[in-house]
């Protein structure tokens, strides 16, 4: 990327929101009595050219957020604004087509997400056939070859089938497929989780390069927090369907505010024996409650070492407590702490 382009990109990164999500909900009705609140009212925004990391434990709703943004799922409630376009309720055909093109997804499992009966070329050009119907087969083939080159494969791979590739190579094919229609926004749902450590770095570097060259915007979903920190500008931490903390990635690691974030960070084993020997771990007791039966008040209270009386009755508001750093916890709420007769946690 040229210096000029980079400056343009950096300046842009500071400006325009590509995606604004307001009070997004996705509930699944399991039977007459049970509703599973997979995503239960979350708000965030992502700037053009930025990467937002989304972390949290299994089942907390990360993939559901991704699937709702890419419209695999219809949201239960909430508003979205994508690239200046307000989206509420059902989409008309034209808007749906635009979203289908501008928003692409890369999946966790490079094995099951590629159709085993299609050649690499067919997989990559599928989106082109839909979104660029005027393209001649020759142009399409050229485009497929360019895309293969871009992700570190070559045109000899075009005629082969997914099973002939390693996991890392398959993930490259998935990335080429997502890039084919020149999207603006990519939801990467655990794109490296199924890969070996030595291959993960290859894919992360590729995603970063592509972003720099094309000004792509990412939502990067993961539970491996060290990779998330490395790739994300900001990170949102989810717990049981809600975002409990959101901050710049360095800030989040240096100064986690929410008790859950603190526990999560302290639980990641670090690949450094000296650090492992010396550091204090916060080990949470208990299991994650079921999203069909979310605790009253603060949903983390059943595992929180600091839970107070108010936590069982009042759901903490998600508030900005410092520029660019938001948290949903009563410990940082002066009013509640005064009522509890406890000392306010300083930020």
């Amino acid at each position: 990327m040229t210096q000029e382009l980079k400056e343009h990109h950096d300046a842009n990164a500071g400006q325009k929101d590509l995606l604004v999500v307001n009070n997004l909900k996705k509930h699944f009705r399991l039977d007459r009595k049970t509703v599973l609140k997979a995503v239960d009212g979350i708000s965030f925004s992502i700037k053009e050219g930025e990467t937002l990391g989304l972390v949290g434990e299994s089942g907390c709703g990360k993939s559901t957020v991704g699937r709702t943004l890419t419209r695999i799922y219809e949201p239960t409630d909430g508003e979205l604004e994508f690239d200046g376009l307000k989206i509420k309720g059902r989409l008309d055909r034209k808007t749906k087509k635009r979203i289908n093109r501008d928003v692409q997804m890369i999946f966790q499992d490079p094995y099951s997400s590629l159709n085993p009966r299609m050649t690499v070329s067919e997989i990559i050009s599928e989106g082109l056939v839909i979104h660029n119907p005027d393209m001649s087969p020759k142009e399409r083939e050229k485009r497929v070859h360019e895309l293969l080159q871009l992700v570190g494969l070559n045109k000899n791979h075009a005629g082969r089938y997914p099973h002939e590739f390693s996991g890392g190579q398959r993930q490259r094919i998935g990335i080429a497929r997502a890039l084919a229609v020149e999207p603006k926004f990519i939801v990467a749902d655990e794109p490296i989780a199924a890969l070996d450590v030595s291959i993960q770095a290859q894919i992360v570097n590729l995603l970063k390069e592509l972003q720099e060259d094309r000004g792509l915007t990412y939502l990067f979903i993961a539970h491996d927090l060290s990779m998330v920190k490395y790739i994300s500008d900001r990170i949102a931490v989810m717990y049981l369907g809600k975002i409990v903390e959101l901050a710049g990635s360095d800030e989040l690691y240096e100064k986690p505010l929410h008790p859950y974030t603190q526990a999560l960070l302290s639980a990641i084993p670090l690949p450094d024996p000296e650090k492992e020997r010396t550091r204090e771990q916060i080990v949470l007791t208990g299991d994650v409650p079921s999203p069909t039966d979310i605790p009253s008040g603060c949903r983390f209270r059943t595992r929180c070492p600091f839970a107070m009386d108010s936590c069982a009755v009042i759901d903490p508001e998600f508030r900005e407590v410092e520029p660019g750093h938001s948290v949903a916890c009563h410990l940082y709420d002066a009013e509640i702490m005064e009522k509890e007769g406890k000392e306010l946690k300083t930020v």
Binding site: I199, N205, Y230, D250
Partner: peptide
């Protein structure tokens, strides 16, 4: 090839090439 939590994020990771 592992990111170091303390290292600046601008440094590219050093992957092992190939598979």
């Amino acid at each position: 090839s592992m990111p170091n939590l303390d290292a600046p994020r601008t440094e590219p990771l050093i992957p092992i090439p190939g598979s």
